[in-house]
Design a protein around this nucleic acid. Structure first.
Length: 469
RNA sequence: CGGGGAGUGGCGCAGUGGUAGCGCACCUGCUUUGGGGGCAGGCGGUCGGGGGUUCAAAUCCCCCCUCCCCGACCA
């Protein structure tokens, strides 16, 4: 086993998180409070997230486009609730080109306003609908309490914005994105179970009629909102005059959605799967799925290791060859563990003489297996699938053992100190503000069958209460 | 913005008024390589910033800034 190279999770979870970020070389803090530098390995993980999400977004029919970083301040003010929600965290540019600007511009905190001002131009007829647009961009929200990846002043995300002819169509699309893009990605790529539900009025997005959410449980029992999808109703359509002529010739306001996930997901990855040896990246997400570590370059081991890496690549595996034999073996082993590479294959003269390699899985504590060289490609493919399933199961077990059914607000308060409390919504709906005094929030509302409520006023809903990031 | 902690080399820390140090990392060489190896020799710091007290300040005083933890706002 490696010597303790990180603060342990149980000893000091926030410190452990920062240690992982630093030692896995994911990110550094930027010079301006709340900003971060995403380092190559951290960015490679984000690029994998982007690729998987982008494919699903396009499968859902949306097209990518790009809108400006700078938004006229007046645009924000057009939707009353929206501006009220965002004005505390706006970065406003008042001077540029050496002069004071006549109208200040804000750095986008989200792009509803500027995108909808163009939707207003582009949407004339019901034939222009649905209009399904996605943007990959950076946004800025001046945060009071930043934490790398989880809450940074500037972050990267995708934001989808759509316009539909009917409320039903808009609602169906926001739920489609929630399930087919976000939930599918969380479960099948990130290997993280998520509670999918509806936000309470208090937690709803500023300017939305309804906000849907995915909530994950992190390693310390706290909740993390991993993505949101909003039904915007006609709020922005009215504020930005997005109207279309219907089949019957009447003029109607469009119905809209918006939805996003961000670099916060990298934080979810760390806190959802990490252990005392560092990060653990699920194979479906991992930029490096297997690393071939050359122990010593003797008796042709170097060539064999390179050939093996090529063979594994041929089997469709994302492979890196580590032949830095001038660096001690232990150091390199620790490095790959910190970075959470799912499978490590150690190759040295001793193995090759026996026609084997040493295979180490990252999902179980330092357990080595000696496996034959022959058929290694298919074998690693199988192991990767096993690891993907095992990581999901571990995360699911942790969430289930950390979730308690509570009958009263007091029980909920107790249970939510270190996990999730599921409590009948009727028992606590009037006490949401009181919970906030204990740093507890209602993360989401779900129907008894786990489905998504049509309204927070529906009967027999279950509220999940937890501390949250 | 409230409460708490901390800023000294890349990282982690010691240093209560008198020549800025240690561990790790880094560089060079040799040796080693199957879990952060060993030996030897090196590089690297306006002690967060500004002002003040003093013969003399990392150290005492004042102001400011930043970071971390616990809250209020939030993806």
């Amino acid at each position: 086993m490696a010597k303790a190279v990180l603060t342990s999770k149980s000893e000091d979870f926030p410190k452990w998180y920062q240690d992982v970020v630093a030692k896995a070389e994911l990110a550094d803090n930027g010079p301006v409070r709340g900003t971060m530098v995403i380092r190559p390995y951290g960015y490679a993980i984000w690029e994998r997230m982007q690729a998987e999400l982008d494919r699903r977004i396009k499968d859902a029919g949306a097209q990518n486009a790009y809108f400006p970083l700078f938004i006229p301040e007046s645009y924000l003010k057009r939707e009353a609730e929206h501006v009220e929600g965002f004005s505390p965290e706006l970065a406003v540019v008042t001077h540029a080109g050496g002069k004071q600007l006549e109208e200040a511009v804000v750095v986008r905190p989200t792009s509803e306003t500027i995108i909808n001002s163009f939707f207003s131009k582009w949407v004339q007829s019901h034939r222009d609908l649905p209009l399904l647009i996605n943007q990959w961009a950076n946004v800025v929200r001046w945060e009071l309490r930043p934490r790398v990846f989880l809450r940074t002043t500037e972050f990267l995300w995708q934001e989808g914005h759509t316009a539909h002819a009917t409320q039903d169509d808009a609602r169906a699309y926001s739920l489609r994105i929630l399930h087919e893009v976000y939930e599918d990605f969380a479960v099948n790529v990130m290997a993280l179970p998520v509670l999918v539900g509806r936000k309470t009025e208090r937690e709803r997005f500023a300017g939305a009629d309804a906000t849907y959410t995915l909530e994950g449980m992190m390693g310390d029992g706290k909740a993390l909102q991993m993505g949101t999808s909003h039904e915007l109703g006609q709020n922005f359509a009215k504020a930005f005059d997005i109207t279309f002529q219907s089949t019957s010739g009447t003029s109607e306001h469009a119905w809209q959605t918006s939805w996003g996930v961000s670099t916060r997901l990298v934080g979810a990855l760390i806190m959802g799967h990490g252990d005392d040896a560092g990060l653990r990246v699920p194979p479906a997400l991992a930029p490096i799925q297997a690393v071939v570590v050359l122990v010593r370059d003797e008796e042709g081991a170097g060539e064999r290791a390179a050939a093996l890496a090529a063979e594994l690549r041929g089997a469709g595996i994302r492979v890196q060859l580590d032949d830095r034999v001038e660096t001690g073996f232990g150091r390199r082993a620790v490095e790959w563990e910190l970075k959470g590479v799912p499978v490590r294959i150690e190759v040295g003269p001793r193995d090759l003489a026996a026609g084997t390699v040493t295979l180490v899985r990252r999902d179980v504590a330092a357990e080595k297996a000696t496996v034959p060289l022959d058929g290694l490609g298919p074998r690693v493919v199988d192991v990767l699938a096993d690891i993907q399933a095992a990581l999901f199961q571990q995360a699911l077990d942790r969430r289930e053992s950390g979730t308690v059914d509570a009958a009263t607000i007091e029980e909920a308060r107790q249970a939510a100190q270190a996990g999730f409390a599921r409590v009948p919504w009727d028992r606590i709906r009037d006490a949401e503000v009181d919970l906030a005094a204990d740093a507890l929030t209602v993360r989401c509302l779900q129907r008894a069958d786990g489905g998504i409520p049509d309204s927070s006023a529906d009967p027999d809903l279950t509220a999940t209460v937890a501390k949250a990031y």
